[in-house]
């Protein structure tokens, strides 16, 4: 295999790595950059667990080759809590409103689909400030959750939207 030198912009930081050219963005994030918050559930584009944002758009990291990402901004769950609520006391100072609402509503049970779900939800809220239940259901329909039945996830996303 030929290793390829790549510079990716991940969570606002430039990261240069050498990776096999056939390795996916998911593998590079987890194995080269140590960003294990992004999960793999199938590595076939079926479950949505590996969803990250590329220039704000949710993509499946398991189906994305890093070479094609170029100099776009990649955001993973580790980059979600980046002072979105700066100024507020305690936990709220660092966490994204979605993370707080997910905790309050019990929207993460096993937590494995959660990082991907959060990234999809962030992309939705970034484009649609007050989504309807149907819009939320449609947005997260590519993110499989086996624990919750989705109800708490809807409620959490609605709660985060109402606080924005």
């Amino acid at each position: 295999m030929t290793k390829q030198l790549l510079t990716l912009r991940v969570n606002g930081e430039p990261r240069t790595i050498a990776a096999d050219s056939h390795h996916t963005l998911l593998e590079v994030l987890r194995e080269e950059l140590g960003l294990t918050g992004t999960k793999h559930g199938c590595e076939l584009g079926e479950c949505g667990a590996c969803t990250v944002l590329v220039d704000g758009v949710p993509v499946l990291a398991c189906l994305t080759l890093p070479a094609l990402v170029g100099d776009a901004d990649v955001t993973t769950v580790e980059g979600l809590a980046n002072g979105a609520g700066a100024g507020a006391p305690g936990r709220e100072a660092t966490l994204h409103p979605l993370q707080i609402a997910f905790a309050e509503e019990g929207a993460a049970q096993c937590g494995y689909c959660t990082p991907g779900m959060l990234m999809t939800a962030k992309a939705l809220l970034d484009t649609t400030a007050r989504p309807t239940r149907a819009q939320i259901a449609s947005a997260i329909s590519g993110n499989l959750c086996r624990c919750t039945g989705y109800t708490a996830i809807y409620e959490a996303i609605e709660k985060a939207a109402s606080r924005a």
Binding site: G34, T76, E78, A103, E104, G106, A108, G111, Y112, T114
Partner: peptide, 23 residues
């Protein structure tokens, strides 16, 4: 009371270490 789960913060920040996350 509807308190957030004590382990939810790790789940929500990507810090929870599942078996495959161990290197």
């Amino acid at each position: 009371r509807r308190l957030p789960k004590v382990n939810s913060w790790a789940h929500l920040t990507g810090e929870a270490r599942y078996a495959d996350d161990l290197f």
